[in-house]
Structure formats: structure tokens, C-alpha cells
């Protein structure tokens, strides 16, 4: 992918929360690039820093958080600016016009006493668009795109919509001002399987039609496998591996990614021997020295305990931060591809 396609470049960003017990280093020296029209998945467990990172990108962090280093370079129409330097007015424009975020738990995102139409109008108006007819036309068009009955939903109150409908309405609201980047925080968690399927299909269609880039945050590996072009694995506030989706799922290089993949039950396989990652995620107030994953890692050596591994490009666009990728590769080839009992047999659906 060409460098000129980069629309968001995160450079060495660190975010710290001030807590009573001390500073929580929630995001540490994270760098990544987002290309035009691309879907990037941030996967990791709770506390891995994925939500903090994305809140940092739009400067929506809570008041006890500080961005201690780094830049967020955003490019539109050939002009590049650092989001962290934007004036309050420019920042207001940047949010939603340039970069929209759809938060977790759509059920609570709408004001219960306003009709959907008013909430769309409010959004447009607060961003300086006052042409009601234009907003209505855009809204109805978006409702069609997300497979909602436009006229009905437009006049509805939030409580008249089901969970899946609300989530789709929220997606439409997110792209109302035609942003280049949409950040989705756990877009399908808490939704039922069939509703989730509808949302995934709608999102894919929207992205094709409107050509925005997506950063989506999820702990659900299957969702990343289905929707992402690239995947970044986060652990203890750092990106430990990032690469094209097939590389991450079929040729992982970091022991944590490998561990996640081996702990997910798969429908297409017979009886499997899943292996869980021992231990628990670290306390980010006093994280382990060296590689933060070393206390849970089967390959950990003395070097891992003292020196933090850098992110290194092992294959085109596939980076990992591990001193022992050779051992990970050997282990992965021995276990990940292991022929399952019913391999090749698919559910007769």
C-alpha cells in the first residue's frame, strides 16, 4: 500500500492515567498507520489499552488521563496535521467530520426523550450544518444503506427500536458527516448472533459504498478474522504484533497472538485440545520489566526479563515484538496447524 494512502499515522503515543495507587501506563509507545479504505482491528483483552488508544486518537480521554508523548498525524486532501495540536474549534470539526467514534453499548447512546430525527439534526447543527432538508435526505439514504425502514426509524423514539436497529441507527449517525475514519468500539458485543451477523454485513456494505477507514476494537478474534484487512494485537498497552489478517491468523509470530488463537474453540474442528495462556494480564501500575508478556510466556528467557523487544518487520507489513520468533514459529507449526479429528468436514448447513 502506498505511503500517500496513509490518512492516520499514530507515532509513538503514550497515555497515562493518574490513579490513587500510582500512574497507570495504559498505552505505551504505540505507533501505527491507517490507510484509506482499510479496516484495522485492535484485538486484546480487557486492560490491554485498546479503548484508551482509540480515545486518545480523538482526544476524548477522561480528565485523569494524559498523553505523555507522541503525535497523531491526520491527512485530508493532502494536508497533514497533528490532532494533538488542534485548537478547540479545529478539534470539534475533526471529530465526526473527519473521525467518528461509535461507542460500545448502543442501547445507551441515544437520548431517550428525543426522536431519532432530532438527534440526527442536532448532530448536524452542532457541526454547522443547518439545511434540514439536506440532513434529512442524507439520513434517509443512510438508513437505507443500513437496511432500516427509513421513514419509520426517522420518526421513532429510541425505545421503539430493537437493539440491532439501534446499533444500525448509531452506525448511520456515525457516518452522517461523511468521516474518513470510523472508530468502532466492540461493535457487536452484547448483540445476539443473528443480530451480530446483520451488523457485520451492513458494516461491510457501508464501508464499500462510503469508502471510509475503520479502526475497530474487539476481543472477538472471529470478528477480526471476518472484517479486518490488518490486525494489531495489543498486550499491556503495547502493540506486540501487527500485520495482514491472514498473516496474523495463519502465521502468527508473537506468543501472545499464538496463545489467543490456541485458546479459541473452533466450530469447524472436531474435538480440539485448547490451551489457555497461563497467568493473568499484568498490573499496569507496576508492569513487568523487559517484555511485558514474559511472566506468561513459555519461551521467556533471561533476555526477555530485562530487555523489551522492538517491533520488527519479519515479513512484508508483518511486525512482531518478540526475541524468540523462531521458537514461536516452530511451536505454531507444530500445534496451530495440527490436523483436527474432523478436519475438512464442514457443518452440513
Amino acid at each position: 500500500m502506498a505511503e500517500q494512502d496513509v490518512i492516520l499515522e499514530v507515532d509513538d503515543i503514550s497515555i497515562v492515567y493518574q490513579a490513587e495507587r500510582g500512574d497507570v501506563r495504559a498505552t505505551n509507545n504505540v505507533s501505527l498507520k491507517l490507510h484509506k479504505g482499510e479496516a484495522l482491528a485492535l484485538i486484546g483483552e480487557s486492560g490491554s489499552g485498546k479503548t484508551t488508544l482509540s480515545l486518545g486518537l480523538i482526544r476524548m480521554l477522561p480528565s485523569n488521563a494524559r498523553i505523555t508523548s507522541g503525535k497523531v498525524m491526520y491527512t485530508r486532501d493532502g494536508k497533514t496535521r497533528n490532532v494533538l495540536d488542534l485548537s478547540p474549534g479545529d478539534l470539534r470539526y475533526f471529530r465526526w467530520h473527519d473521525c467518528a467514534m461509535v461507542f460500545q453499548g448502543a442501547q445507551n447512546a441515544f437520548n431517550p426523550v428525543l426522536r431519532i430525527r432530532q438527534q440526527f439534526m442536532d448532530t448536524a447543527r452542532s457541526h454547522g450544518i443547518n439545511d434540514e432538508q439536506k440532513v434529512k435526505a442524507r439520513t434517509l439514504e443512510l438508513f437505507k444503506l443500513v437496511r432500516l425502514d427509513p421513514e419509520r426509524v426517522y420518526e421513532s423514539y429510541p425505545h421503539e427500536l430493537s437493539g440491532g436497529m439501534k446499533q444500525r441507527t448509531l452506525l448511520a449517525l456515525g457516518v452522517l458527516l461523511d468521516p474518513q475514519v470510523v472508530i468502532l468500539d466492540e461493535p457487536t458485543t452484547a448483540l445476539d448472533i443473528l443480530t451480530q451477523r446483520a451488523i457485520i454485513d451492513v458494516l461491510n456494505e457501508m464501508q464499500q459504498k462510503l469508502n471510509f477507514s475503520i479502526i475497530f476494537i474487539s476481543h472477538d478474534l472471529a470478528l477480526a478474522a471476518e472484517m479486518a484487512d490488518r490486525v494489531a494485537t495489543m498486550y499491556a498497552g503495547q502493540i506486540v504484533e501487527i500485520g495482514p489478517v491472514n498473516d496474523i491468523f495463519y502465521r502468527p509470530l508473537h506468543p501472545y497472538t499464538l496463545g489467543l488463537l490456541r485458546s479459541v474453540p473452533r466450530l469447524d474442528r472436531g474435538q480440539e485440545d485448547l490451551i489457555s495462556i497461563p497467568g493473568e494480564p499484568p498490573d499496569l501500575i507496576s508492569p513487568p520489566t523487559g517484555c511485558k508478556f514474559h511472566p506468561r510466556c513459555q519461551f521467556a528467557s533471561d533476555k526477555c526479563r530485562t530487555d523489551a523487544p522492538p517491533l520488527v518487520e519479519y515479513a512484508p507489513r508483518h511486525f512482531a515484538a518478540c526475541w524468540h520468533t523462531d521458537q514461536v514459529i516452530a511451536e505454531r507449526d507444530a500445534t496451530l496447524g495440527a490436523a483436527p479429528t474432523f478436519s475438512g468436514e464442514t457443518p452440513n448447513v
Partner: peptide, 10 residues
């Protein structure tokens, strides 16, 4: 239901 479930295999 089974056809709708995403799987961790791209």
C-alpha cells in the same frame, strides 16, 4: 445460527 457465526479463520 451456525451459518451466521463468524469464525477465527479469515
Amino acid at each position: 445460527l451456525l451459518s451466521a457465526i463468524p469464525e477465527a479463520d479469515p
